[in-house]
């Protein structure tokens, strides 16, 4: 592919976003509404806050909670998933409860978490992990059960050791399903991260946005919303890339 072609494709995929930004730019500078400060001011606030003190004070704690919660959910979900998939009776017994817990809106548990564990980071991480756990767990179980019996048989016939069965047969074989759960869990974790920072918090991006709103610093508020959007976009895009790499073995990307 030549350079001109690349430029054209870039243009096709970006022009609408550029128009969108331009329209917002012009609109916000024209209407002079206190709710919609001009875009340049929002961007200034963005760079001042998020490339300044705000990074260490709010972004880092938020990201640590998100990462720790997601990591815990992933480890627990995969581990419990493998265990439950190996014991059909245990799975049959526990599954309805897992379905129920998945259906609970994680945010509704915020007051509960606050009560049980206080407003520290531990309670936030627990909440994020709790919310993100169920999609991973349930999809891991489904994924393992969807592996062809012939594949399990051939692992058994060759006396493949338990470690290798888990890490080279069950988890990779279940991954096309597991990844559906992980994608869901990432967005749930983001929601819970933000939610937990609205409800009894002293730092974090969500806290910053809410405080900016309460003190009527609308430019700061919008810059926080913009940052949350960017984080969401970067996380999802990065995960898609990881997923494509792991699923290289599949004939076609049938999504």
């Amino acid at each position: 592919m030549n350079a001109g072609n690349v430029m054209r494709r870039l243009f096709v995929s970006a022009w609408m976003a550029l128009v969108f930004i331009t329209v917002i730019w012009i609109a916000t500078t024209q209407i002079r509404s206190p709710f919609f400060p001009p875009l340049p001011i929002v961007l200034t606030s963005f760079s001042n806050t998020w490339f300044g003190a705000g990074f260490m004070e709010h972004v880092v704690p938020s990201m640590i909670n998100l990462g720790a919660g997601l990591a815990a959910a992933l480890a627990l979900g995969l581990g419990l998933g493998v265990a439950l998939a190996s014991f059909p009776l245990a799975n049959a017994l526990v599954n309805p409860y897992a379905q129920f817990l998945r259906a609970l809106p994680g945010v509704a548990l915020l007051p509960l978490m606050l009560m049980l564990m206080g407003t520290n980071d531990g309670s936030k991480i627990t909440l994020i992990a709790f919310g993100a756990l169920w999609p991973i767990l349930l999809n891991t179980i489904d994924g393992i059960r969807s592996i062809a019996p012939e594949q399990r048989d051939s692992a058994r016939a060759y006396r493949v050791t338990p470690f290798n069965v888990v890490f080279r047969v069950l988890l990779p074989g279940a991954f096309p399903r597991i990844t559906v759960g992980i994608r869901l869990s990432i967005s749930i974790a983001l929601v819970l991260m933000v939610g937990s920072e609205y409800y009894g918090a002293t730092h974090g991006i969500g806290f910053y946005v809410l405080q900016a709103k309460q003190t009527f610093k609308t430019a700061d508020m919008w810059s926080g919303v913009l940052l949350l959007g960017l984080i969401g976009y970067v996380l999802t895009t990065a995960y898609s890339a990881i997923e494509r790499r792991i699923l290289r073995w599949r004939p076609t990307d049938d999504r």
């Binding site: 012939e150 594949q151 048989d153 051939s154 080279r168 047969v169 990779p172 074989g173 991954f175 599949r250």
Partner: peptide, 11 residues
């Protein structure tokens, strides 16, 4: 086994 596509691990 008969069905190579299922007895090899495609991943």
């Amino acid at each position: 086994a008969q069905d190579y596509s299922r007895s090899l691990m495609p991943w």
